[in-house]
Amino acid sequence: MNSEISTQTPTPIYPLGEMTLRLSSTPRGARLARRLTQQQLVEWGHPYDGEASRTAQQIVAELAANAVTHGRVPGRDFELRLLLLAEDTLRVEVSDARGDRGLRIVREADSEGGRGLIVVTVLATAWGVTERNVGKTVWAEMQLPQSVSSRRTP
Rank of each mutant, 00 (worst) to 15 (best):
S147T: 05
L41D: 07
P27E: 09
A140C: 00
R72F: 15
V129Y: 05
P154I: 11
V68M: 06
I59D: 08
R107I: 13
Q57I: 03
T121D: 12
R115G: 03
T125W: 00
T69M: 09
Q143H: 08
V148C: 11
E62F: 01
E18I: 14
E62H: 05
R31I: 00
T26G: 12
R151L: 11
V60M: 06
L90W: 02
Q38K: 13
W127A: 01
D110G: 15
P27Q: 09
I105H: 02
D77F: 09
H46P: 00
R101A: 15
T7Q: 06
V134H: 09
P154R: 14
I59L: 06
I13D: 15
Q8P: 07
A67T: 06
R104N: 11
F78Y: 12
P15H: 10
D88C: 02
A67D: 10
T20G: 01
T69F: 11
E112G: 05
T11M: 11
D49P: 00
G50W: 08
R35Y: 07
M19A: 09
T26L: 12
Q146I: 01
G75A: 02
T9P: 08
L41N: 04
S6N: 10
R35M: 12
S111A: 13
L21S: 01
R54C: 04
A109Q: 10
R22M: 09
E43M: 04
P154M: 11
L41I: 05
L63K: 08
L84P: 00
E112T: 10
D88S: 11
T69A: 15
P10R: 01
V92C: 03
A86C: 01
P74A: 00
E131T: 13
D88K: 13
G71I: 03
R132M: 12
